[in-house]
Design a protein around this nucleic acid. Structure first.
Lengths: 202, 202, 202, 202
DNA sequence: GATGAATGAGAATTCATTCAT
DNA sequence: AATGAATGAATTCTCATTCAT
């Protein structure tokens, strides 16, 4: 456990930097946060920043990865607590939790919007076991081949709609857009074959 | 008519600036384009920029508005040429034209992704008469109340998916994502009541 | 003449920078002179430097060109005043003037040594008409084909010997090295054919 | 012998540093090589550098001394292999070997040009016994008094001309300058008395 | 309206050096 | 002897903005 403590100590300054950067990115946006700001807030020397990160983009990426991972886990756990009756239900609960979190923390949303592409996160191992679409296979929400694409499309949709709605108020407030978003997702998950047959009717 | 010519002449420098800025934004990205770059390329003096624009954000906004308007019109016209048999068909043709355009001009896509929210454009008068969801009312693709939201959600989805797919190659190339995107949109437009009843089965 | 005055005014800041840089390069050496130092001494803003020079190397080059050109003219004039009886005499007077100047201003020598290669200067038009080897042709000090090479070799020799002798005191002081240098140059200018025949004797 | 081994081991890190520094100086130039670069390449800790060298200048000096000594020995040996018929011949062979080596390794040339003055090396004991001007005395290439000066002047000349010719291409390529340089040196070694008498004729 | 020289605050980055372990 | 995390002064370079002409 000593080595654990050592490496913990070794990472202390790095963690100070990460914490400071997160706080500043959230309050001022990443574009207007200088490395000077970060080290001043972290209480470390300028050079220490470059000991751990190559540039501002790198610390942003690190923070985005950590935040989105955390966000997804948190939403997943919240959904589980509501005993979803189906995979669809579960997904909708997850989305709802995400929307609520974004509504509570618009700055976080602003930060994640277009600094984050879910593509990378969703294909990462850590998130695979969380899952947002339930198990692949029999009970899956969509054909296995489309699994990744669907997860990805849904997450991009959620972020885009939240951003526009919560931050810009366009085309309507989040209280109006949320139900619409949820029903949109429900529609997305409808079995494709059934859609095609229904499409014929029009 | 003289005054018309005069005001046209008066705008000459402004147009030079707009043209120069567009070209630079596309080739270097808006972040790395300085006002210096713009005036040099436009062949006007530094001070002249501030005669017409307050800052870089303003010229960017102007360009984004013009570009997205043009893009939507172009896609609309292309769709019309294919004699769509229904409003859904027409919308899918429009989306296809947009995707193709983005695939041909990744730089334009990158520019729009980072600097445009369809919310503003879609609610503008100039785009209203283009329309992407057909006429409101009887034959409409979705309930009148959801009209704007649906248009908005679809456009955000298209941009997000294109960006991730074309620029980042995540979660797959655009040739794979395009059919998936089109079928996703088809599903989004399915009548909600039918969905709900189908949702029960799960 | 108005335009002359205008362009003179336009160059005022540039000249302030050049003067400040020269003074600093001479007193601290070019390596330990920062752009900050230069602008502070010149009394202009930081950005103004970059309005006129791309980087420190550029201002150094400009100064070196001006200084060496001046130096050569000065030495040439001094030589002329002594009514040299032959082209060889004239060259030796020039070299002597250069050596004396370097001995009086070791800092200048230190600056020019290995920041300057005579090659560029000697082939420039401004120096062509000064000449250090007299007229090409009949009376020339060396075959026309070797003219440039000879001028170049002599100047490199002078600078090298002066530097080592004056700055480092190696292998002897300048009062000892000067006569040796002059006689070395005299030897260099000896007709090659004669040398070859003399070489046989050894 | 144990102590010998120990002190050899003790020097192991120092040698690692020297080897790493040489390689870096040659590939990046000494100015753009940081101590960080050196220790990283050497695989030792930052602090270890300061255990053996006071600053970068010190390690540079050490390397320059070793390199130029090696270079001179190498050139000397090569010259010997060609069975020079006279001291002049021998010197010219040495110079030729040096020029060829510089032409093959322009980086080495650049490094030596900027950081070496032959003055120090030529007066060192290790080089005295190599000699480039043959034995002092009867058969010497020049009067004993001028021995050191001449050796020095020739070496500076060779380095300067090689640098300008090989690196800058001024005033001509090395294939053109080499013969000229060799004949110049031949002239430099001509007996001074004979010169003086010949000088009268002009 | 138009110009463009001048500004100077500020951002990023480097690197020799120290020192507790 | 050896380490390497931490330092922070120093430096380069950018760029939006102003203003006298």
């Amino acid at each position: 456990m000593i080595s654990g403590l050592v490496s913990e100590k070794k990472q202390k300054k790095k963690n100070l930097l990460l914490a400071a950067a997160l706080e500043l990115f959230l309050s001022k946006g990443s574009d207007s946060t200088s490395i000077d700001d970060i080290v001043r807030k972290a209480g470390v020397a300028k050079g220490t920043f470059y000991l751990y990160f190559h540039d501002r983009g790198e610390i942003l990426k690190a923070i985005m990865a950590e935040r989105s991972d955390y966000l997804l886990r948190m939403a997943s756990e919240k959904a589980e607590l509501q005993n979803p009756s189906s995979a669809t239900e579960r997904l909708l609960f997850i989305v709802e939790a995400l929307v609520d979190e974004f509504a509570r923390h618009p700055v976080l949303l602003g930060l994640m919007y277009r600094n984050l592409t879910w593509g990378i996160l969703l294909s990462s191992e850590t998130v695979k076991d969380v899952g947002i679409l339930g198990e692949r296979g029999q009970d899956a929400l969509c054909p296995s081949a489309d699994f990744d694409k669907m997860a990805f499309v849904i997450m991009e949709l959620v972020t885009s709609v939240c951003y526009s709605s919560i931050i810009l108020g366009e085309p309507a407030g989040i209280e109006v857009m949320k139900p619409f978003l949820l029903s949109s997702i429900r529609r997305l998950l409808v079995d494709e074959d059934k859609i095609r047959s229904m499409g014929q009717n029009r």
